[in-house]
Design a protein around this nucleic acid. Structure first.
Lengths: 201, 201
DNA sequence: AATTGGTTTAACCATATAGTTAAACCACTT
DNA sequence: AAGTGGTTTAACTATATGGTTAAACCAATT
């Protein structure tokens, strides 16, 4: 590993757990086992270093959103794929959601630096919905509401972990882990059930 | 308004938008139109002042959770009440969710200071579920998963507003407001549909 | 072995910020 | 009017922190 990589790795660790304002350049330097001046030698300023880490964090999440809609037969299949990919990714990077939420709320301008051609495929989801409603496979629902709902269900327990763990599981960590362990299936079923056609009642 | 109330009001404003680390005692003093020393005269330290504001914020949210389960006939009714109360509350205090998430994640110990006898009525929800499943009114579902789902759907768009607005609505603010304007009904239907009995298919 | 140029360090600087202090202010009592 | 005690201020302190600088280090080149 080059010094630059070591720095980035340390910065990642510190920034992700403490945010821009909570992080200290000294702590990043210590974590990397180097002098504080070296951080500035490689990345001019705290802001610049942070921006690298933040953009990278966002980039880690966005690709999972772009489930190849071509290979998908219907909305349920798309949602199943989407939930599966996204949930697995967040499980491996559980700190990212809260990190991104926090920093975007602190400085909404950061959004501009990360939004490229990576928007959610809302238009395509709309088409899938329209087609499946016509076929009687699902009930009508706005694509935006459906996607926000789906993402909310995936991300929330990770972003609000300490609160959920305390308020719902009375700080029983094992109970919370168990809760997470089959949550992917719970979410998938919840969403699919929620959009089943009305005439099936 | 007494000076103490003016200080609390200013501190509320600054802390809620910037968090503990982002807030400056000088800014709170300016906002209150007083000298910085006066803040310390009334509230010893930044930490102490912050804690007051934080506990108060949490207390603003928790009561809405305690929907009187006595007056409720079945789970659907409970969920309808719960969503309605909670959503209205958050609509009036849209900054609270992200503020609380951020600060709890920064310092999970804060949870201990706010959790009294205010836990979610999980046990009672479990009973409601059990009864309604027996009656064939809903499908089986874990109470914890259902409550996390419901809260996630309510809170997420507020906590992640800049991201949702950008990624889903391409920064069209009017579109986002419209999205929020009928979201309460969308969530209610989404949750109720998701727990409808299986044999209705 | 001397030179060169990128890398790393120790020491330093400027500034922001939480917190303190001593004096001034002011309403109220005597 | 003098005194009293809570309130408010201006000025100050101590420290943490992001950033800078000049020198040292070291591997490669000649």
């Amino acid at each position: 590993m080059t010094t630059e990589e070591i720095i980035l790795s340390s910065a990642r660790k510190v920034f992700r757990s403490k945010g821009l304002e909570g992080a200290r350049m000294q702590e990043i330097a210590d974590e990397a086992g180097i002098n504080k001046a070296l951080l500035h030698y490689y990345f001019r300023s705290k802001e610049k270093l942070f921006e690298k880490i933040f953009i990278e964090a966002f980039a880690d999440l966005l690709p999972a959103v772009r489930v190849s809609l071509n290979q998908v037969e219907n909305l349920s299949q798309f949602l199943t794929f989407f939930i599966s990919r996204y949930f697995d990714l967040i499980t491996e990077l559980p700190y990212l959601p809260q990190f991104i939420l926090q920093e975007i709320n602190r400085n909404p301008d950061l959004m501009r630096k990360v939004t490229g051609n990576n928007e959610l495929p809302i238009a395509q989801v709309k088409m899938l919905i329209h087609r499946d409603v016509e076929r009687g496979l699902i009930r009508p629902i706005e694509a935006e509401q459906l996607m926000v709902n789906t993402i909310a269900l995936i991300i929330f327990p990770f972003a609000a972990r300490p609160i959920v763990q305390s308020l719902i599981f009375d700080n029983d960590q094992a109970a919370f882990e168990n809760f997470l362990s089959h949550r992917k299936e719970v979410i998938t079923r919840f969403v699919l059930d929620a959009i089943k056609p009305q005439n099936s009642l």
